[in-house]
Design a protein around this nucleic acid. Structure first.
Lengths: 404, 404
DNA sequence: GATATTTAGTTCGGTGACAGAACGAACTAA
DNA sequence: TTAGTTCGTTCTGTCACCGAACTAAATATC
């Protein structure tokens, strides 16, 4: 029932599918207009898709001149995707349908043993979540796992992931595939967050953007020319080692990263400690700053200056149109305001800087985006080049079809 | 005679053409094996291409078992491309054939009036060069012009080009089109240099690389995931404003660019002047350093440290596999050596750093690459996605076809 | 209420890009 | 001379897709 339709119709089938996915309930005649294919061909392809269980009749149009049209829509529960955001402390797992809607979601503390136990934990969460939502196991087609590191899809290992034990030495990809029983894609978590904001968040319709996740560490995801940039070792955006903030030639900078020392959690705490002698957590520093503590305000000011410098560095190199701040610290309005204030003082061209609107769920949304687009590729053929992400619209559901 | 073949064969025709371009003299049977298309189809397509004048018989294979094969090769003079490298002081113009070989080249001092006079100068150089090489005017199909700024292909203007007068206010693209009488593409000169090195220079076969041009100013071109990265305003790689080297919040940095102040010509001269009180040119500083002048050596050392920091910044953000140094200062071995020495002290992961091997002609080679690939797109249909640059091989010509 | 107009969708008869089998042509090896 | 191999064509078939003609079903107009 849910077999991939035949291959030779690759392109047309894909574009028909896209029209149905994005056009909500839509008639075959409208699909023909949208895609430029003939009515006859559309009827054939839609029949194939309907036979395959991917698409179904929804009703008829009415109220306009001419014959009423039968409308079709996506069968959202024809297949499901597992989206995972694996963080150093928390694991989020979601099962989403073909419309990108989250069907069920689950969160748990990360199994700190890392390695296989962690893979088992996540696979267990995913499979039991699916069961709980009454999603048949053979409808799960693909999992996308966001990891805090640089996955190498050749070896299946995850490098630069100091927070997850053993992931740099084992074949994580294969372990997930075996534990889950279907295909798995690994991707850097910040990259996924960037894709998430680009799909359903602040970055909609923007081809060049940077997502900066600032928290315990600092990382960024770059979408340039509409494509996610990964770099040679999947380490693009690992900006902790920017030679900014601290002296980059200090051996400590070489270990932790000069920029990470300056802006991430540890840097803020240290900054407050050097002026006051008190070692307190970041949320408390923000509280005290709000209450008027001068040292706390100074620490936040200086951090924001450094954040502005980091954004300047990204802009100087990658020239995004928009920079989205995320992560536990990056999402704080105090940081956003000040970074916006300092940026024009160290970078001459205007750049939009905003907070991510998806918050901590950005990576999960991004994982869904990757999953959907990959699934469409394997099921319905490749998209025409530079068509961007062809995913369901994010807004209101099922608007009555506007004829033309 | 030189009409584009029919459109419906887009994909197959393009891949046959690629096989012929890259496979040197090649038989139809071999093309069939390479492309996976049937012998019958290949014969048809090759006949079309031969009728169009794009391809011709070269001879027959011999010496192996079985029937001899007729071999075909590209008609290199079926069309020509004009490649232009427009610098602040010099203009280079080349006419290249379909194999990417430079047929004729011309250099002249840039018309400092900029604007229309400059366009006229370049068009004149191109057209008379073509005439000199006996290239019929209707065989010129496309010009690619590298400019020191950020071309906006919508408005045809060139922004961020302080060295070329009036290019930021006039429709440069249209002016070139009218002066030349055929299609024109504008591209940033450093981007072209990056593409040049990527095609025929140090970057062959590398999907993620950065080209850093260091001279009077500093700029870089990024090729990430096999694609040239342009950014939102075509200003990706304009790294002069990196907040490194000088204090980025100094108003002077906001004007010139903190990093540009630190590493480009002016910075080196100033560095030498502050220690010795002498204001001398960069080449002289390099001479004195070679002769053992401690202040000169120190100036170069410090500059190289900053170059290493800049490379670190690029690597932290874009994660290229290779960094190629170019430009009058970047090409000096003294800088390369020292940058290689300092880089591991401020960036923990290994990155290859090399000098560009095409020297000052990198941009011209890149312009040819862009022109060829664009021309192939318009003439023979689009390439299959992620096939990379499908350009003639750079090595020895016409090796006898090795059967399989 | 009959007729014109408009739109949806099907049937039918192409066309063009391929594939694949069969076969002749042309060569080498023995 | 014969066997084996490779090249290239011819012939037949398949498949995606188009366009025109036609049917079906609605609204607009008189």
């Amino acid at each position: 029932m849910t077999d991939a339709p035949r291959i030779s119709r690759q392109f047309s089938q894909r574009s028909v599918m896209e029209a149905i996915v994005q056009g909500g309930p839509i008639s075959r005649a409208s699909i023909a207009k949208l895609t430029g294919l003939s009515k006859q061909t559309i009827s054939e392809i839609v029949r194939d898709l309907e036979d395959g269980g991917w698409v179904r009749e929804t009703g008829r149009t009415s109220g306009h001149v001419g014959r009423t049209a039968v409308t079709y829509e996506l069968v959202v529960d024809a297949a499901f995707i597992v989206a995972v955001d694996l963080g150093g402390t928390k694991v989020r797992v979601a099962v989403t349908d073909l419309a990108g809607q989250i069907v069920i979601e689950d969160t748990a503390p990360t199994d700190l043993r890392g390695g296989r136990p962690l893979v088992t934990q996540i696979a267990g969460m995913a499979l039991s979540a699916a069961e709980g939502a009454k999603v048949a196991r053979d409808k799960l087609r693909l999992a996308v796992v966001g990891v805090p590191g640089a996955p190498d899809n050749r070896t299946g290992r995850v490098l630069l992931a100091p927070n997850i034990r053993d992931f740099d030495t084992m074949d994580v990809l294969e372990a997930f595939r075996q534990a889950l029983g279907f295909d798995v894609v690994l991707e850097n978590d910040v990259n996924l967050a960037a894709l998430g904001e680009s799909w359903q968040g602040q970055g909609q319709g923007i081809d060049n953007l940077a997502y900066v996740a600032l928290g315990t560490g600092i990382g960024s995801g770059l979408i340039l020319g509409g494509n996610l940039v990964r770099g040679a070792a999947n380490a693009a955006g690992e900006m902790g080692f920017l030679p900014i903030g601290a002296n980059p030639f200090d051996p400590e900078s070489l270990r932790v990263g000069a920029y990470e020392r300056a802006v991430a959690t540890h840097g803020i705490i240290e900054r407050y400690e050097t002026t006051t002698g008190e070692n307190i957590s970041v949320p408390v520093i923000f509280e005290r700053a709000a209450a008027g503590d001068a040292a706390a305000v100074a620490a936040i000011d200086e951090t924001s200056r450094q954040v502005a410098c980091g954004i300047a560095a990204i802009c100087a190199i990658a020239n995004p149109q928009l920079v989205i701040l995320g992560g536990s610290i990056g999402l704080r309005p105090e940081i956003l305001e000040r970074a916006r204030h300092f940026l024009p003082q160290c970078f001459p061209y205007p750049v939009d800087v905003v907070s991510g609107e998806l918050g901590a769920r950005a990576a999960l949304v991004g994982a869904t985006a990757v999953g959907l687009s990959q699934l469409h590729n394997t099921l319905f053929g490749v998209a025409t080049p530079n068509a961007g992400l062809s995913l369901p619209p994010t807004g209101a559901e099922s608007s009555q079809e506007a004829a033309e």
